[in-house]
């Protein structure tokens, strides 16, 4: 992994289109600005991780799961 030292106000480029700027350093927090094309999704890693794990779990459908039964139960709710 590449590690670079930057000061507030300095940037780095990832490829030709992604610019990461250190906006502010205050105590143990760093404010970072990311300029990237619209297609590139930028998220805090812990949030991305939560979504990733939820997707993983959603993809595991219990064997022999009776979907009709579940849908019936969901219908009851209304």
């Amino acid at each position: 992994m590449l590690a670079l030292t930057r000061k507030a106000g300095q940037s780095l480029m990832i490829g030709d289109e992604i610019e990461v700027t250190v906006v502010e350093i205050r105590g143990d927090q760093v404010r970072i600005a990311v300029s990237a094309p619209r297609e590139v999704a930028v998220h805090r890693k812990e949030i991305y991780e939560l979504i990733r794990q939820e997707n993983r779990q959603a993809a595991i459908l219990p064997a022999g799961l009776d979907v009709n039964e579940i849908l019936g139960l969901m219908g009851e709710k209304e």
């Binding site: 939560l50 997707n55 959603a58 219990p62 799961l65 039964e69």
Partner: peptide, 18 residues
């Protein structure tokens, strides 16, 4: 919304966050 089925179908949740 993606639904997650847990506990063999006893619990269903919807992912409204993503």
């Amino acid at each position: 919304a993606i639904l997650t089925v847990k506990r063999g179908g006893a619990e269903i949740t919807a992912n409204l966050a993503a």
